[in-house]
Design a protein around this nucleic acid. Structure first.
Lengths: 230, 230
DNA sequence: GGCGGGTACATTGCATACAAGGAGCGTTTA
DNA sequence: TAAACGCTCCTTGTATGCAATGTACCCGCC
């Protein structure tokens, strides 16, 4: 995570692995609601719809299962995962401790350039907030948290957070942003703690931040696709 | 996690999904060192070796990648993952926060029967320790931590911990057990905190416990396959 | 009218076949 | 002799085909 962006050898263009494209397409179809929770995904239908054979479909479905998007019942096929209220709360709880740990590590490893970058992302988030740009706000939020774990340098943590984050983003569709103002103010305080190199403080602030988001969710929104980001 | 053991409908016998058997076989081959880190896994070779076609092999490899056992470089194939010192430390760090959170949840949700079960597992661990039974100790340790997250009732957490735990178990082969005595004493204090319903205390004790294990590892063992469990 | 059985269909699981891409190696030439 | 080119083989990626299994519907029987 600490390496320069050009570390991964990517000469000029990659041959475009088909299963990856299928994965992205299906994940998007699930995230935007085209494929509804509980729906039975028939391999041949998907294959025809996407214009490929069943093989890449199958491989994509396996990965989708691994990431919690679908359930693969043996000999029955794939079903779009139906998130329960309980599961969402659990997911938010796990995200909270992981993000807190991420902030802890970031405070320990951040260099001045990282702080500057965080402030840029913060500014971008506030701009999106001012513009009532829900989509931009979600992106900025993701970028902020993702850069935090990048700073921490913990690849294992980055993997786990990205798994959790993807599912959280699914449940928390980019429609409502009532918590945006508070959330980004809290981001600012986290940045301050990281700039001070105070790992404990950053960790505590981040935990408070994400727990407030969780609490906000538990009180208000009940159904996915209309909850805040944070 | 809280449901009765008979919840999952399992009529009489399951048809044994082949890809699952392949996954287990390959994971075992990697864990016990038959397939060495960095080794190139050729699909057709594995297929012939296991007596199946390439299809189940491919599907198993995808899952193995998702769980961090192999790396799948597009157009190059699968390579057994080579764990770095840095990655192991990161893995232990993540495990620490997840297990602490698990203990926190367990303290909140434990019922008397759970406490009793934990004490049984504790006794089993101490028995294995007394008998210098490394394998039994590893199993008991896994059972202990896995029952904790079961008590917490957090399925998402259980999934993540199991992912991390599998990899930790790979690196920490069941050979040495110098930290066993301290580790199980610390387990006992965690149980006490859970019995008291003191979530904060349980969380803190568990974090201290796993962080001590991490520190123990960083000081002593450097190579996998000869480190303690905890 | 309700229940049981049987058949046909739909879908998954697995195997095989084909095509494309890359790596390694040998040969050839300057 | 060294370097560059080209070729061949190997491996992966994708597609198609076949068999087994589970499901649903329909018909017949009680």
């Amino acid at each position: 995570m600490r390496e320069s962006p050009s570390t991964g050898t990517r000469p000029v263009a990659r041959p475009a692995p088909l299963r990856q494209a299928v994965y992205d397409a299906l994940a998007e179809l699930i995230a935007n609601g085209t494929l509804r929770p509980g729906q039975h995904l028939v391999e041949s239908d998907l294959a025809e719809y996407l214009g490929v054979s069943r093989q890449p479909i199958r491989e994509a479905l396996q990965r989708l299962q691994g990431d919690g998007w679908v359930e693969l019942r043996p000999a029955h096929g794939a079903f779009v995962h139906t998130p329960t209220e309980e599961e969402i709360v659990q997911l938010l709880g796990v995200r909270s401790v992981l993000e807190a740990y991420s902030a802890h590590g970031a405070a320990q490893h951040a260099i001045p350039a990282d702080i500057a970058r965080l402030r840029e992302l913060q500014a971008a988030g506030e701009a999106a907030l001012a513009a009532d740009d829900a989509r931009g706000l979600v992106d900025a939020n993701t970028a902020f948290h993702s850069y935090l774990v990048h700073i921490s340098g913990n690849k294992v943590l980055a993997d786990l957070i990205s798994q959790v984050e993807r599912r959280v983003r699914w449940y928390f569709m980019p429609t409502a942003l009532p918590r945006g103002t508070d959330a980004w103010a809290e981001h600012a305080s986290v940045i301050a703690a990281i700039a001070d190199g105070d790992a404990e403080c950053a960790q505590r602030l981040m935990r408070d931040h994400t727990e407030r988001t969780t609490e906000f969710y538990r009180q208000d929104a009940v159904t996915p696709a209309q909850a805040p980001v944070g």
